[in-house]
Design a protein around this nucleic acid. Sequence first.
DNA 1: TTAATCATGTAACACGTTACATGATTGC
DNA 2: GCAATCATGTAACGTGTTACATGATTAA
Lengths: 191, 191
Amino acid sequence: MSLKHGLLGLLNAGAMTGYELDRSFKRSLSFVWKAQTSQIYRELTAMEAKGWLESQRVVQEEKPNKRLYSITDAGREELNRWLSVPKPDIEKAFDVRNGFLMRVLLAGETTNEEALAMLVAFREKCLQDLSSYGAIYQSIQSSNKTEETAKREKYWMLSAKFGEGQYRAALEWVEEAIDLLRSEENEISRN
Amino acid sequence: MSLKHGLLGLLNAGAMTGYELDRSFKRSLSFVWKAQTSQIYRELTAMEAKGWLESQRVVQEEKPNKRLYSITDAGREELNRWLSVPKPDIEKAFDVRNGFLMRVLLAGETTNEEALAMLVAFREKCLQDLSSYGAIYQSIQSSNKTEETAKREKYWMLSAKFGEGQYRAALEWVEEAIDLLRSEENEISRN
DNA sequence: TTAATCATGTAACACGTTACATGATTGC
DNA sequence: GCAATCATGTAACGTGTTACATGATTAA
């Protein structure tokens, strides 16, 4: 149930609307968890029903009305409970489900050209995503520095760096893989 | 729908039972896709209903009876169709959902000791999983070498190496993170 | 004698994805 | 004039998880 607990964690730092939570997930939590907008709204409804959250409607004139969610005492208890489960989701940290890799694995059933094209596209994706880490680090650090926020930022930065490391490893892998396939192509054309 | 297509890919290399497919996923496909046993049986039933597979019951005396699945022409067509979708799951390659990292991110809400304990457990997990890669590579290469199997093995090895690279990057990350937290602890105790 | 392996599933529930709907405002 | 942003959701469907059930054989 990490999505619910992620939302609890964000709301523990201050009240937010569903829209703002969605943007946090998309902008600066994407290396940890990806969620659809519709899912966030559904989870918020479910969490309010459980008593973990309260919401109040904020009427606006220039913009659509919004609903501001805040964490309740029961929500804080649940967050602390989840954070202190002795053996957390370490087993699930590498609980992979990678559709791209599945295609690499099965690329033996197609042509080498198709496989190469796929790897080249993947390299582009890695480069693009890696280039956004500067902005991610900045967005983590930009808040005002109290003792509490400094502690939060430290762990936030750590988990962002995990994501960056995974991308760097992926990039190294794909460059070696492209070299391998290209060198094989040359061998074939020399024969 | 990568699980269905992964199963198609394996069955394209030869008929198998649900049990054997489950073991393939658990033993040598775990770096690409993790699936529950019950899910594999459910998918096989659904795939047979779609006409992608056929099964025949094999009666055994010493062991329980089993059901042997083979791919149909319709199944091979579907596999080829999926493999040649121009823009595959590259967007989903880093479609992260990592409960462990979520806890790292939110560790600012707990004590540093709890965070450290979690990281130490994660390091153990990385070391353990990394130590199994030798066996994975062997299990990929151990089949008899025809041209067809050699091509399959090449891509299989590539995707396994991706997994190993991710683990190595994770290990480097966790060691740096542990050092960081320990050095902070020392700073505090010197004051 | 306890656990693991072989072999197959069902049922209920939780979670994730896709498509759709609404409608004003602001920037190119 | 068109796309993006703000802001909220519903409905249907697809996929993943957990718990349970059965029962023989073999190795530590």
